[in-house]
Computed example of a mutant assay.
Amino acid sequence: MREKPKVERNMSKKSKPSKQKKRATTSLSSQVDKYLDLVGHQIFQGDYAGAVINCERLLNYLPKSAPQRVDALAQLGTAQGMLQNFLQSYAAYTEALSLDPNNAELWFNRGMASRFTSRFGRSLRDYERAKELNIRPELAEKLEEELKFARELAGKTLKLRGPDFTLDQLIEQESLFQDGLQLMEAGEWEEAEQAFRTSIAMGDCLPQPWGNLGISLMMQERYDEAEAALKRALVIDPRYKLAKENLAALPQIRRTGIPPMVDIKEPFKDSKL
């Protein structure tokens, strides 16, 4: 009988990374750290626009799993916040938290970004989570101040919606409103309409969802419905400027057609921080 061919059962050992490869990795990491130091210096000097540019360059370069992404996103959130680009600041902190969910400082900073994007329920939750995770004495006092204010703000907001409205419902409703604004910016008017209608159905107490619903309907050339929505906004708040201006412009828009662009204002833009 023929002998069976012998099969090598032992796996060959993996070759160790060469010293040259290690040096290259270390060099790249060092370059990233220098870039982060530059961004930190730009923020300290008040060059927030420059910091945003460098953060975005760095994030485009870094792999999704790179640990430095958290620092880059945190710096981006800070710079965008100082430029009062609160939606972008919120998005940066949210992505950073997806990578480092136990970072108290990130929760604290997103709590501020949540407030300035009218997510008052989310802001309270963020500060509560920051307090649970915080081990830094220097942050503790500031946290208590922000928590107190966030509780008062969320409490007043909940009171408008009635005694049975929960914090979870508030977070969902505020998120729907922000989704609607982003859909408006993308020109997705039907989807924006649905987001605002769902938000209103959860609790009809503010003029802003009606005002933005009116714009969404106007951009679909559904002028009668737009007029009704804008008038409803003014029933809730007769001083609501956005609804007054759009209602005044509606007769001309009916004659000449919809405008090519709509200016969507963030409520805290140009506020004093």
Score class of each variant (00 low, 15 high):
2 R>N: 10
6 K>I: 11
8 E>K: 12
8 E>Y: 03
9 R>S: 00
13 K>I: 10
14 K>Y: 03
14 K>M: 08
16 K>V: 09
17 P>W: 05
20 Q>Y: 04
25 T>I: 14
26 T>V: 07
26 T>M: 09
28 L>Q: 15
29 S>F: 09
30 S>I: 03
33 D>L: 15
36 L>F: 11
36 L>R: 06
36 L>H: 07
38 L>T: 13
40 G>V: 14
40 G>I: 15
47 D>P: 13
50 G>A: 09
52 V>Y: 02
53 I>W: 02
55 C>R: 01
55 C>D: 02
56 E>S: 07
57 R>K: 12
57 R>W: 03
59 L>V: 10
60 N>D: 15
60 N>P: 03
61 Y>W: 11
63 P>S: 06
66 A>M: 03
67 P>T: 10
68 Q>Y: 11
69 R>A: 05
70 V>M: 09
70 V>P: 09
70 V>Q: 07
71 D>A: 15
71 D>S: 15
74 A>C: 06
76 L>G: 03
77 G>Q: 08
78 T>F: 06
79 A>Y: 03
79 A>C: 14
82 M>H: 14
83 L>D: 04
86 F>Q: 00
87 L>W: 10
87 L>N: 06
90 Y>C: 00
91 A>P: 02
98 S>G: 07
99 L>F: 08
101 P>I: 10
104 A>M: 08
107 W>V: 05
110 R>M: 12
112 M>K: 05
114 S>D: 15
115 R>P: 00
117 T>M: 06
117 T>Q: 07
118 S>Q: 05
118 S>E: 14
120 F>E: 01
122 R>K: 11
123 S>T: 02
123 S>L: 11
124 L>A: 01
126 D>L: 07
129 R>T: 15
129 R>G: 00
132 E>R: 06
133 L>T: 07
134 N>P: 05
137 P>A: 10
140 A>Y: 10
147 L>T: 07
148 K>F: 05
148 K>G: 03
149 F>E: 11
151 R>T: 08
153 L>Y: 10
154 A>I: 09
154 A>N: 04
155 G>K: 09
155 G>H: 10
158 L>M: 08
159 K>F: 05
161 R>Q: 09
162 G>S: 08
164 D>K: 14
165 F>H: 07
166 T>C: 07
170 L>E: 00
175 S>G: 11
177 F>I: 13
179 D>L: 12
180 G>P: 01
183 L>E: 01
186 A>D: 11
191 E>S: 13
192 A>V: 08
194 Q>R: 13
195 A>N: 07
198 T>W: 05
198 T>R: 15
199 S>A: 13
200 I>F: 11
201 A>W: 04
204 D>Y: 06
205 C>M: 12
206 L>R: 13
206 L>I: 08
207 P>A: 04
207 P>W: 02
213 L>H: 06
217 L>W: 04
220 Q>T: 10
221 E>P: 02
221 E>I: 01
227 E>I: 12
228 A>C: 09
228 A>Y: 04
230 L>P: 00
232 R>T: 11
234 L>P: 01
235 V>T: 14
235 V>I: 15
242 L>H: 01
244 K>H: 05
246 N>V: 01
247 L>H: 01
255 R>Y: 04
255 R>F: 06
255 R>L: 13
256 T>N: 13
258 I>W: 05
259 P>C: 02
263 D>S: 03
272 K>M: 14
